[in-house]
Computed example of a mutant assay.
Amino acid sequence: MEIYKFDKNNGKKISKFGSDFIMSRVIQTDKAANIGCMYLEEGGIVGYHQAVVPQLLLVLTGEGSVRGESEEYINVESGDAVFWVKGEWHETKSKNGLTAIVIESEELDPSLFMETE
């Protein structure tokens, strides 16, 4: 399991075409990718299971805790990205709720765009 940052502080100022915003690049794939939005309510949990393909969890709002194959949980919050490799056992839970984007694809390398925590 790896933890990355995609918050505003890790983004790049974009000014082309009269733009004025910050973009934090996350991932690029050549192979098909499944992208979903996950809502964990208060006390929500994604039970301990193996990743079928490499998986990237992007925490948008709220906070929670994640673990890989060790029993140690790591706290995550808005702006954190968690990456699990194919076959890696993992779990996500939240005491007060969190919303996250989940990207799954055979070809994910978040280190190309994001820095680790």
Score class of each variant (00 low, 15 high):
residue 97 G to S: 03
residue 93 K to L: 11
residue 40 L to Y: 04
residue 111 S to K: 13
residue 13 K to H: 14
residue 74 I to Q: 15
residue 30 D to N: 15
residue 22 I to K: 07
residue 20 D to P: 10
residue 33 A to G: 02
residue 116 T to S: 15
residue 36 G to E: 09
residue 72 E to F: 02
residue 65 S to D: 12
residue 90 H to M: 04
residue 111 S to D: 08
residue 69 E to P: 00
residue 91 E to H: 08
residue 9 N to I: 07
residue 14 I to D: 05
residue 107 E to S: 12
residue 50 Q to L: 11
residue 85 V to K: 15
residue 19 S to T: 12
residue 3 I to K: 15
residue 105 S to W: 08
residue 99 T to Q: 06
residue 97 G to E: 02
residue 60 L to G: 02
residue 9 N to P: 05
residue 20 D to T: 10
residue 85 V to H: 13
residue 59 V to A: 00
residue 101 I to W: 00
residue 96 N to P: 02
residue 92 T to S: 12
residue 30 D to G: 14
residue 116 T to E: 15
residue 36 G to R: 05
residue 19 S to N: 12
residue 80 D to N: 14
residue 77 E to L: 03
residue 58 L to I: 12
residue 18 G to T: 11
residue 35 I to S: 06
residue 50 Q to M: 09
residue 83 F to L: 03
residue 87 G to F: 05
residue 38 M to Q: 06
residue 6 F to R: 04
residue 27 I to F: 10
residue 37 C to E: 11
residue 67 R to I: 01
residue 50 Q to F: 09
residue 79 G to P: 00
residue 56 L to I: 06
residue 81 A to P: 01
residue 47 G to D: 14
residue 67 R to C: 10
residue 89 W to G: 10
residue 87 G to I: 08
residue 13 K to G: 03
residue 108 L to Y: 00
residue 103 I to V: 15
residue 12 K to S: 08
residue 48 Y to N: 15
residue 86 K to N: 12
residue 80 D to L: 01
residue 13 K to E: 13
residue 95 K to C: 01
residue 79 G to V: 01
residue 47 G to T: 13
residue 46 V to M: 11
residue 71 E to P: 00
residue 52 V to M: 10
residue 41 E to T: 12
